[in-house]
Design a protein around this nucleic acid. Sequence first.
RNA 1: CGGGGCGUGGCUCAGUUUGGUUAGAGCGCAGCGUUCGGGACGCUGAGGUCGGCCGUUCAAAUCGGCUCGCCCCGACCA
Length: 574
Amino acid sequence: MKYSEMLIPTLKEVPSEAEVVSHQLMLRAGIIRKVAAGVYTFLPLGSRILKKIEAIIREEMNRSGAQELLMPALQPAELWQESGRWGEYGPEMIRLKDRNGRDFCLGPTHEELITEIVRNEIRSYKQLPITLYQIQPKFRDEIRPRFGVMRAREFIMKDAYSFDLDEEGLKVSYQKMFDAYSRILKRCGLEFRAVEASSGLIGGKKSQEFMVIAESGEDIIFYCPKCNYAANIELAQGENKVILEENILPMKKIATPGKSSVEEVANFLNVSPGKLVKTLIYQTEKGLLGVLIPGDRAANETKIALSLDLKELHLLKEEDFTKYNLIPGFVGPIGLNDIKLVADKNVKKMRNFVVGANEKDAHFINTNIDIDFKVESFDDFTFVKLGDLCTNCKVELKEMRGIEVGHVFQLGKKYSEAMKAYFSDQKGELKPFVMGCYGIGVTRLMAAIIEQSHDQYGIIWPFSVAPFQIVILPLLTDSLEQKKRSEKFYHELERLGLEILYDDREVTPGVKFADADLIGIPLQIIIGKKLNQGRVEIKLRKTNEKFEISADDVVKKCREIVQKELEKLGDKSG
RNA sequence: CGGGGCGUGGCUCAGUUUGGUUAGAGCGCAGCGUUCGGGACGCUGAGGUCGGCCGUUCAAAUCGGCUCGCCCCGACCA
């Protein structure tokens, strides 16, 4: 492609709307332009990059045996009502009516549609297992779109769905997808980590996220430096480092006038916040719930809801406290007869702790479970924090940030049962499909690659996803010799199947260098004055390595470099 | 939804506090010339209903009300 004929509107200055580096560079490099908050146009360069990423995903999906199909973005409400998610999804789903007043939505995901297809078209165990996928736009009306395409309202996603006859089969299908995802991210040149995650609204038991490691990531991951345990903070588990052995003391009520927060009470009693136990009162669809957690930890509502199988879980509003004879700031487990009480596992080990006395300006000290009160059950109800130990190997957990680019779920029968999607097994009995679903945010992946691969001059595309692998830069615009030679390289390299951007613009060398660096083409062929001695320079964008070579060797050398670099990324197709 | 900020040529911004000529700068864009290994220089030029509506005033980018859009923090969320 000739640069002069391509729309690549690069910007010198950083548009004020962009906060993170990938967003800034995507705007500056002429990859995207904003249409509305969280809605973007992909310009020609962006479109080429998307196609490169999609091609890698297709190759790996197909290699793993998945089949591509294409489902619509516009979906009728009926299917969502069948699964129950029309009500569950909330304002994040973009809903609309057709001219006849029928309800539709723009699909935020496609479990319902795929289940509809499969229940109609697949009847026999002989047709299983099957995995279907598509690459297609999704719509989610995010509360706060941000970071450019990283959290957008319209975005491109690869979503795959597996159908098996039993749980065993699901595990096999899931593993195939897991492996495919690992290959995809490796080929995109990414440093990533698979972590245990919560399955949220999608549902199912086991789920793992593929996290691209980046400071700007929105997710926090805890991992063990010794074993390979890694989990999203939303469900990461750890254990308390210190366990204090103390003799049990008799409980005693003491006055704590005006001291209601953990910090105030701890200061007043001259103890650490870890000596206190907070009693949080939640409103749930099963009634009120009291959750006891150590004073120095934060409640993790994802874990609580998961452990106790709750759909609704909201902290009791302060104005409702009086309804149940509760006193804000002085709630405690003793005397809460009508409220189900559970406790974080860390509380189990605590001795002689402090709790609210359920009366104004008073706390109990030296409280102990089973002596002073009882709880129904213990489980992990809090967030891990730095300093906690890995439950497997008792080593301190470490923390890092990541960008969630992929998520794989073992769904089970949630959708097949709700939507009556059955097949006949060997015995002729009807059984629900056992499903898995697997997503990759294609547009988010693009941003994640930039987050991990850029420098002060611009983007550094890995060879596998670069919009062009090579850029040819003749420096002297009125040199016929340089122009002829550039065109020769351009045609010869293209004939080899390489992707070439030929900068034929009549601009100064500085502009060409700056744009080539900014848009991140990984290999540059620089044709300058030394061409009259038959010498040409080639430069690797990533390392800034420069080689001056004979013009006759350029084509061969470039082909070698591209092939070698693609192989490094585990991409044999180049 | 709560809090904060912003909206002036394609981009970055000044001007708004204290209303008053033809609304400015840099970058970008067009033409000509000189340049040509890291965003060159000179000259000439095009381009703006100051987000929108209503109001106050002799007079509004500037003051008031409403409204729309965008960004950041939070709550929330695959």
